[in-house]
Design a protein around this nucleic acid. Structure first.
Lengths: 201, 201
DNA sequence: ACTTTAAAACCGACCATTCGGTATTTATAC
DNA sequence: GTATAAATACCGAATGGTCGGTTTTAAAGT
C-alpha cells in the first residue's frame, strides 16, 4: 500500500506540473486530485518542492534523458526512425497514465522544463548537458551518413544537426499549442523525412 | 506623470511576466520592481489579471503579430532576411527596456505565451490564428520561389514552410534555455541559410 | 493462532504567512 | 479648491505546512 500511495501522489503531481506552472498548482490541487489527505502527502514528501524535484528526477528525466547509443548508427534514416519510435513510446507512456485520462488539459513538457530550470540551477546544468549530448549524437550520425554516401551536402555536420534538433523542438511546441498528441508522431516522422529528402543522395 | 506611471508599471509587469510564470510573479514583485505603491498600481489597473491582459495585448502582440505583408515577396531569401531583420528589431526593443537592464533573469517568450493561452481562451484562439497566418505566408513565398526557379524540390510547399517555422521556434527555445540574446540573430540567419542552401537551385 | 504492542499510513482541523485587493489618507498638479 | 495620482495600513481568502488524532498494518509476545 505504501509504495502505491507514494507513487500515486507522484504521478498525480507529475500530471499537474505538466499542465500548469509550479506555482499555479497548489497543494490542494495535488491533494484533491490524488484523493488523499494533506497529512498523507506530507507523510511521503517533505514539501511541495520535494515532490517537484522527485517528479523532475523521475518522470521528466524519463522523457528527457534519451540514450542515443541505443539508436541505430547504420544510417541517418534509421537513427531518426529510432528517435521517432522512442517518441512513440513516450507518448504511449503518457497516455496510459491514470491521472491523464481524467483531465482534459493539455500536457506541456516545456512548462515543466521551464519550471525545472527556474527552480534548480543544478537541474538547469543537467538539462543543458543533455542538450549538448543530443547535439553530439546528431552530429555524429550525420558524419557517418556523409561518409557512407547516404547524404550529400556542403553544410557542416553541426549545422545539419541543428536543423533536425530545432525542427523537433519547434514541432513539439506546435503540438503543445494545438493540444495534439496522436498525430504528432506521424508529423515528426514526416518532418524528419522532409529534411532527409533534401539531403539524401 | 500619469501616462508615464501607467506605462512604467505596464513595462515592469511585462518584463516580470517574461521571466516567471503569471502565478509566480506576485503583486508585490510588480510593486517593488516599479518602485511605486500598490495603491498606485490599482489606480491604473483593476487587477493582476487586467495588467496581464494589457501586457499581452500590447507588448506580447508586438512580438507575435508579425505583418508578413511587409516582408519582401521577391524571393524566399529576401523574405527570410526581412524576418530576421524584424527579429533584430524586436531584440533591440527588448534590450532597451529600462527594467530589463536591471535584471539578470532571462526573457522567456514562451512562458508568457503559455500563460496567455492558459488564462484566456480568446487569446489562445488569436494566437492559433496568427500561427495559421504564419504558415500561409511561408507557404506562399515558397510557392513563389518555386515558380521563379529560385528553389527546386519535390517537397510540398507546406512541408517546407513547416521546416522554416519549426526551426525558428526550436532555435528560439534553445536561445531561451541558454539565456542567449545577442548571438541569436546571427544563428537564426545561419539556420535559415542552411535550409536555403538545401533548397536553392 | 490469538493478543498485544509498535510502527506506518492517513486524516482533517488548524497555523502562520502570503496573496490579491480595498479603504482611507496624503500628495501633487492645475 | 478640485481632480488626479500615490501611499500606507488593513482586509479576508488562499497558500504551504503542522499537529494531534485515528486507522491500518506489521511485529512481537504468549
Amino acid at each position: 500500500m505504501a509504495t502505491d500511495s507514494r507513487e500515486y501522489i507522484l504521478e498525480t503531481a507529475f500530471v499537474l506540473f505538466m499542465q500548469r506552472s509550479f506555482k499555479a498548482v497548489t497543494m490542494n490541487d495535488i491533494v484533491k486530485s490524488s484523493g488523499m489527505s494533506k497529512g498523507a502527502f506530507y507523510h511521503y514528501f517533505k514539501s511541495k518542492e520535494e515532490v517537484f524535484q522527485e517528479v523532475v528526477n523521475t518522470y521528466f528525466m524519463k522523457l528527457t534523458d534519451i540514450d542515443y547509443a541505443k539508436c541505430s548508427h547504420e544510417s541517418l534514416k534509421s537513427f531518426y526512425s529510432d528517435l521517432v519510435s522512442n517518441l512513440q513510446n513516450q507518448t504511449g507512456f503518457l497516455q496510459q497514465l491514470r491521472k491523464a485520462k481524467e483531465s482534459g488539459e493539455a500536457f506541456n513538457y516545456f512548462q515543466l522544463l521551464f519550471d525545472a530550470m527556474y527552480l534548480s540551477p543544478v537541474l538547469k546544468t543537467r538539462i543543458l548537458e543533455m542538450q549538448t549530448k543530443e547535439m553530439k549524437a546528431w552530429t555524429e550520425i550525420i558524419g557517418i551518413a556523409k561518409k557512407k554516401g547516404e547524404i550529400k551536402t556542403d553544410l557542416a555536420d553541426k549545422d545539419i544537426a541543428k536543423l533536425f534538433i530545432y525542427v523537433n523542438d519547434g514541432a513539439g511546441m506546435n503540438n503543445i499549442l494545438r493540444n495534439r498528441v496522436g498525430g504528432a508522431i506521424r508529423d515528426m516522422m514526416a518532418l524528419y523525412g522532409s529534411l532527409y529528402e533534401l539531403l539524401k543522395v
